[in-house]
Amino acid sequence: MIINRIQMLGQSVLSTVSRLGQASVFLYQIILTMPGVFLRPALIIKQLHSTGVQTLIIILVAGGFIGMVLALQSYYVLVDFGAEDSISQMVVLSLMRELGPVITGLLFAGRAGSALTAEIGLMKSTEQLSGMEMMAIDPMQRVLAPRILSGFLAMPLLTAVFMAVGVLGAYVVSVHGFGIFEGVFWSLAQTKVDFYTDLMNGMIKSVVFGLVIVWIAVFEGYDSMPTSEGLGQATTRTVVHGSLAVLGLDFLLTALMYGDI
């Protein structure tokens, strides 16, 4: 009984390591095809539209509400200490350092990541990728690489939009809701935020998250079983693994950027 469980555990670890190796080789092969993708910017622009522009609405709505909720919660705590004027500092730092890249990453994994997996999985199950290979067209270069690149480019842009809308949401609640003086709100937001430590670190996080999410999404789609059940499982794995990767990497990057661990 115990030996069986140890065997199952070993098998599971081996399978995970093997899959990670496959995914790494897969990414390496895609990176090798990248130079050819830059010669066809239309492919990247098309993918930027589907991964970036079509994710914009959910980012705008979520960013606005999260900024407003942050302002509400911050006010209720800070008002006890007579420090409610510091709302903007708290909200802006939270958004730029953590919530901006992390929540954008989670939403991106759910919206764009799952769509990418489904699209590529369906292309595989309907033999579109095999068809391209037989037409002597490399699907890695024409289909997969532009998608990886678009995620890499779209995530920082979406994160910037999320942060901006979040700050605006906080502004509306703080200035028009709680009567915080407008000049104080904006001057604290400006003086207490460091361009490199806060904004750039948040942007670096978003680039890393974007790359990891599209890597997972594209690999899961390409590696999916060509059945409806297999496609469903692959889409689920993209969202689960993508979200967990964002949270895990966020801890790692935060420790490297701000901590002394």
């Binding site: 309907t126 095999s130 290979e133 037989m134 037409m135 002597a136």
Partner: peptide
């Protein structure tokens, strides 16, 4: 290069679903 000299008709057709008939033929 060799595959350019081979054509293959897949069981499912394997047409690219996001472009029309004309563009499917024009693609290769």
């Amino acid at each position: 290069q060799l595959r350019k000299r081979m054509g293959m008709l897949f069981q499912s057709g394997a047409l690219l679903t996001d472009i029309n008939v004309f563009d499917n033929i024009a693609y290769p």
